[in-house]
């Protein structure tokens, strides 16, 4: 209770309570994340179970009975007869999973390499930063596309379907580690030269301990900001890759895959197949982005 009370009184919490945008964004993000996590209990249908689908239910407009089967769906159905509302919930699960996993992967890799470069300096630093340069010269989408292509070459055809989502996560994560590495490296270099660190080294404190106790906490703020924005970016990147023909299988679509499918129906009159998943993706990415924005300002002591 005491700890909770302290959190409530902290600067961050104060700033949060006094930023209506942040509160609304957080609520929106929370609702979407919870709805996605509890999709199997909330969604009226399971769109990922192919045996539950009836093709003849396809293209049912929202709230109107289907001409053949007479079934009615809140947000209508897509080209396979899937309930759009349920598919959005399940799709958000996939999108969020890919997003979070990619961010965690990039974060772990970036922090690790950043610390290594900043702490060790010398040729290790030069090498890692050159690699980062090369990596930066290739935009993330291109890197993801190439990794995806290579992975497909290595993995036997029969396994590709199962590992597709992991390849996707690695592709997106791998294209995003440089940002973390840069920030952490900078902080590590600054802290390394400070007297207390020098002193700790002299008395033989293990470098890992110094890094964990003193350097990491200092960079957690900026890392959190990068991670939040990175989550939104990863979710959008997944959608973009889906448009370019690499992504999760259409039988278990993410929000991005749903939009890719839906944009084929922009001119045909079945607007709901595109509209609802787009709104869901927009709300999700927007609320995460707004949170990131707020966090950036809130964590910057000079802006208070």
């Amino acid at each position: 209770m005491n700890r909770l009370g302290r959190m409530w009184d902290s600067d961050i919490a104060w700033s949060f309570r006094h930023s209506p945008v942040a509160v609304v964004a957080a609520a929106m993000a929370l609702i979407i994340i919870l709805a996605a996590v509890f999709a199997p209990w909330i969604a009226p249908y399971n769109p990922f179970d192919p045996s539950s689908l009836n093709l003849m239910d396809g293209f049912t407009p929202p709230g109107e009975p289907n001409a053949f089967t007479g079934n009615t769906y809140l947000m209508g159905t897509d080209n396979q007869g899937r309930d759009i509302f349920s598919t959005i919930l399940y799709g958000a699960r996939i999108s969020l999973f890919v997003g979070f996993a990619a961010v965690i992967f990039a974060m772990v890799l970036g922090i690790g390499l950043g610390l290594l470069a900043g702490w060790r300096g010398g040729w290790v630093d030069s090498l890692l930063m050159r690699v980062a340069d090369v990596q930066l010269s290739f935009p993330s989408i291109l890197i993801a596309l190439l990794i995806f292509g290579v992975a497909r070459g290595f993995i036997p055809p029969s396994m590709r379907e199962e590992v597709a989502i992991w390849v996707l996560i690695v592709s997106i994560g791998l294209s995003d580690w440089v940002q973390y590495a840069r920030v952490v490296r900078g902080a590590a270099m600054v802290e390394k030269s400070k007297e207390y660190v020098q002193a700790a080294r002299v008395i033989g404190v293990h470098p890992a301990r110094i890094v964990l106790r003193h350097i990491l906490p200092n960079v957690m703020g900026p890392v959190l900001v990068i991670a939040t924005i990175g989550l939104a970016l990863a979710i959008i990147a997944e959608a973009t890759l889906s448009f370019l023909g690499v992504g999760v299988p259409p039988t278990q679509p993410s929000l991005g895959t749903l939009i890719r499918i839906g944009q084929q129906y922009l001119f045909s009159g079945e607007w709901w197949i595109l509209l609802f998943p787009s709104i869901a993706l927009l709300l999700l990415a927007l609320s995460v982005n707004l949170l990131g924005d707020w966090l950036r300002d809130a964590l910057n002591p000079r802006l208070r």
């Binding site: 945008v21 939104a232 970016l233 959008i236 959608a239 973009t240 448009f243 991005g256 939009i259 890719r260 944009q263 922009l266 001119f267 787009s278 993706l281 927009l282 990415a285 927007l286 982005n289 707004l290 924005d293």
Partner: peptide, 28 residues
């Protein structure tokens, strides 16, 4: 605040969708 929020819409939708929507509105 409006500018900040609206500009975020631009990065919260995949590029291909923004392109297709622009075509639909301004070309068709």
């Amino acid at each position: 605040n409006t500018i900040m929020t609206v500009s975020l819409v631009g990065v919260s939708l995949p590029t291909f969708l923004i392109g297709v929507l622009l075509i639909w509105v301004f070309a068709v």
